[in-house]
Amino acid sequence: MDIKDIIKPENIVYQKTKLFTEKPLSYCPGCGHGTAHRMLLEVLEEMNIQDKTVGIAPVGCSVLAYEFLDIDMQQAAHGRAPAVATAVKRLMPDKFVFTYQGDGDLAAIGTAETIHACNRGENFTMIFINNGIYGMTGGQMAPTTLPGMRASTCPFGRDTEIMGNPLKITELLAQLPGVYYVTRQAVHTPNAVRKTKKALRNAFEYQKLKKGISFVEIVSNCNSGWKMTPNQSNKWMEDNMFPFYPLGDIKVPQLEKV
């Protein structure tokens, strides 16, 4: 059979969602942000809620997320996305609201906003991309940088005696009564991506119930910051990040399936 006979519109089984804008992604080759964006958009498309969704972009590599997602978006000051989203959701309780933040944004400068939005039980979805590094500013140490892991501000590896320990913010947030659903996923293999999409779908479905924060961490690579090729970085992530940040559900609501 000739390839031309396969490549026909009626034979399409997968293509980029229409909820992406035409703009090429600004992320480095192999960066997980693009896949995370795509899964998010696929969920919004499948739920048919593009017209009811407001997203909050952070400061970090995904500061320009609004350039790529064809939905109404706000760009928040560094770390403040949960406070911004709090007001958006409270003023428009029937819209779908999400924040999209990196580790520096969510777990360092924005720790207070993160914890308090979670503790108040705000009814929005938080998407947390954890790659253990400040990517946009050039690879500095993040709150989630592993012990011994190198970054430009810990060039000899994170020394926990001097620099403190990495923060497992997700486990911490899972303790709070205002947090309804917590899961940790990845986007580096087809299976991981499928699970992430399911988790994001759960998060947005749970948002409808208005029972608190639905929180999806995505452990991701930063091949530029880690100074590896994309596939090397994904392997390194499996060998080093996953033991410290194990994948899987952390807090699952005890209720009938949604």
Partner: peptide, 8 residues
């Protein structure tokens, strides 16, 4: 296609 970060 599912793992392609740029959805290309």
């Amino acid at each position: 296609a599912i793992v392609c970060p740029d959805g290309v």
